[in-house]
C-alpha cells in the first residue's frame, strides 16, 4: 500500500490493493491459510492498518467478515442461480436497478454477493439505501463498511462518476413492505431519480430481476401502532414472526433466481435529457416493464417456490 507517498489519493481503493496484503502461505492447506489470514486480519484491525474510501467502504472488513455468512445464505440456504452476469460491465460505471421484496432487505445483500462472487472482476456493489439504515446504530456503520450509502442524487452521481457499480431499489419500502398477496407485482418506481442520475453520468442501466425474496418472510400483517412506537416503516407479521420469537426471524429457504438483463444505454441522449421529464418517465417505464416481464418468465422457470 503506497501510503507513504504524500499527496496520493488514499480515498481510492485500487482493486489490487488487497491482493498484495496477504499472499503468503500460498502453498499451505486451506484451513491453515484461513487461520493465518484471520490472525493477520485481527492484527490489521487492532493496529488500524486498513483503508476505507470516502463513503466508508472497508474492503478488508467486508470481504473477511461480512461476505462469508452472506455467501453461505446465498449458496446453501437460498441456492441462488444467476443469469446474465455478463451484462454487468467488466469495468466502469453501471446502475443496477432491481425489484425489492422480502420484508427485510435480504435481496439487496444477495444481489451484492451475486455481483461480487459471480462477476469475473469480483466487483463490489454499492447499494443506495434508505436513510433509516444509516440512522440505525450498528446497522448504519456496517452498511457503510460494506460500501453502501444513502439513496440521494449527490451520492449516486459521485459513485457513478467514480466508475462504480451502483445498485438501487426504486420501490423502496413500498416494495419490501408489501403484503404477500401482492408478490412479484412491482410497486411505483419512485420518481425516476435514478434514471436522471444515470443520464447525467452516462452510465448504462442494468435491469435486475430477483425471484425468491418474496417467500422468505411472507408478510401477512402489519402492526402499525407498534411500528410507529418503534420508529419503523412497518412492523411485520409473518406466519412465524413474532409468534416463534427469534426463531421466526429465520428466513424460509425459498429457491432464488437473479437475472441481470441487457444494459440500457443512457449516453445517446441529447444534452439536458436528465432534465426532460418525458425522457425520464419513458426510461423509468421501460426499466420497470423489463423487470416485470422478466419476473414472470423467471417465476415460470422456477416452478415450486421452495423446491425450484
Amino acid at each position: 500500500m503506497n501510503d507513504v507517498i504524500p499527496g496520493t489519493d488514499a480515498g481510492k481503493l485500487a482493486a489490487t490493493d488487497l491482493a498484495a496484503t496477504n499472499t503468503d502461505a500460498g502453498d499451505a492447506p486451506g484451513w491453515q491459510r484461513t487461520l493465518s489470514n484471520l490472525a493477520a486480519f485481527l492484527r490489521r484491525r487492532l493496529t488500524g492498518d486498513y483503508e476505507i474510501d470516502d463513503f466508508g467502504y472497508d474492503r478488508d472488513f467486508a470481504e473477511t467478515l461480512m461476505l462469508p455468512p452472506l455467501r453461505w445464505l446465498f449458496e446453501k440456504w437460498f441456492r441462488v442461480q444467476t443469469v446474465g452476469i455478463e451484462n454487468v460491465p467488466l469495468g466502469g460505471a453501471a446502475l443496477l436497478v432491481a425489484n425489492h421484496s422480502g420484508t427485510i432487505a435480504v435481496d439487496a445483500a444477495m444481489a451484492a454477493v451475486a455481483v461480487h462472487d459471480e462477476h469475473p472482476q469480483r466487483r463490489p456493489l454499492r447499494i443506495l439505501g434508505a436513510d433509516f439504515v444509516f440512522n440505525t446504530p450498528v446497522l448504519g456503520p456496517l452498511a457503510r463498511k460494506a460500501g453502501h450509502t444513502l439513496a440521494c442524487t449527490a451520492d449516486a452521481e459521485r459513485l457513478l462518476t467514480a466508475g462504480e457499480l451502483v445498485a438501487v431499489f426504486p420501490e423502496g419500502f413500498k416494495g419490501v413492505g408489501k403484503p404477500f398477496s401482492q408478490r412479484y407485482k412491482l410497486q411505483r418506481f419512485g420518481r425516476g431519480g435514478f434514471v436522471s442520475a444515470a443520464l447525467r453520468t452516462g452510465a448504462p442501466i442494468v435491469p435486475v430481476s430477483i425471484v425468491g425474496a418474496e417467500e422468505i418472510y411472507p408478510l401477512i400483517g402489519d402492526i402499525k401502532p407498534l411500528a410507529r412506537a418503534l420508529g419503523l416503516p412497518y412492523f411485520p407479521v409473518t406466519p412465524t414472526f413474532p409468534w416463534l420469537g427469534p426463531l421466526g426471524a429465520i428466513p424460509l429457504p425459498s429457491k432464488w433466481l437473479i437475472e441481470f438483463g441487457e444494459p440500457i444505454a443512457t449516453d445517446g441522449y441529447p444534452e439536458g435529457a436528465a432534465e426532460d421529464p418525458m425522457v425520464v418517465f419513458n426510461l423509468t417505464d421501460r426499466v420497470r416493464e423489463t423487470i416485470q416481464q422478466t419476473l414472470y418468465r423467471l417465476l415460470l422457470r422456477r416452478g415450486h417456490p421452495f423446491l425450484g
Binding site: D24, A25, A28, R33, A40, R43, D49
Partner: peptide, 24 residues
Amino acid sequence: AVRRAELWATGLLGVRPAADGDPR
C-alpha cells in the same frame, strides 16, 4: 507488539503467518 502476538498465535497453531505490509 500486535505483530509479535500474531506470530506467537500462529506459531502456537502451527501455521505460517501472513506477510505484513504495515509500513510502521
